[in-house]
Amino acid sequence: MRYSKLLLIFIVVLLSSCSTSKPPPPAETCEQKKVSKNANRIVMGWNAFGTTEKYIEQNSVSPSLNVVSPSWFRLNAEQLLQSEVDTRYISWAHDSGKQVWPLFGNRFDSELTNFILSNKKKSEKLIHLLRDILVKNDIDGINVDFENIDIINKQDYVAFIRQLQETLHPHGILVSVDVSRANPDPFWSGSFDRRGLGKVADYIIMMGYDEDLGGGGNIGSVSSLPWVEKGIQLLLQEVPARKTILGIPFYTRDWVTDLKTKKTSSNDLTLIEVEEIIAEKGLQKKWDPNTKQNYIEYTENDEKHQIWVEDDKSLKQRLDLVNKYKLKGTAAWFIGHEPPEVWQVFSSY
Rank of each mutant, 00 (worst) to 15 (best):
G172C: 11
R253C: 06
N47Y: 10
K281W: 10
E280S: 13
Y325L: 08
I142S: 07
N183K: 04
E280Q: 12
L81E: 03
A241H: 09
D212I: 07
Q344K: 15
I277D: 00
I127V: 14
K285I: 00
L269W: 00
D145T: 02
H94S: 06
E303F: 09
R195E: 11
S91P: 05
S180Y: 15
M1V: 14
Y157A: 06
S62V: 08
V322A: 08
S64T: 13
F104L: 15
K243M: 12
I90N: 11
P170C: 07
D185A: 05
E238L: 15
L321H: 03
A331Q: 10
I335D: 07
G50R: 04
P26L: 00
E300G: 05
N38L: 11
S265G: 14
L315D: 02
F49D: 03
N114K: 14
S221K: 04
K292L: 15
A27S: 11
D150Q: 09
Q58R: 08
K136R: 08
I161C: 12
L81F: 04
D254W: 08
S348W: 01
N38C: 08
Q163P: 02
E57Y: 09
K136G: 07
R41A: 08
I152A: 15
A331F: 09
T257S: 12
I42A: 10
H171W: 11
S91I: 02
N106Y: 01
D202H: 07
S64E: 13
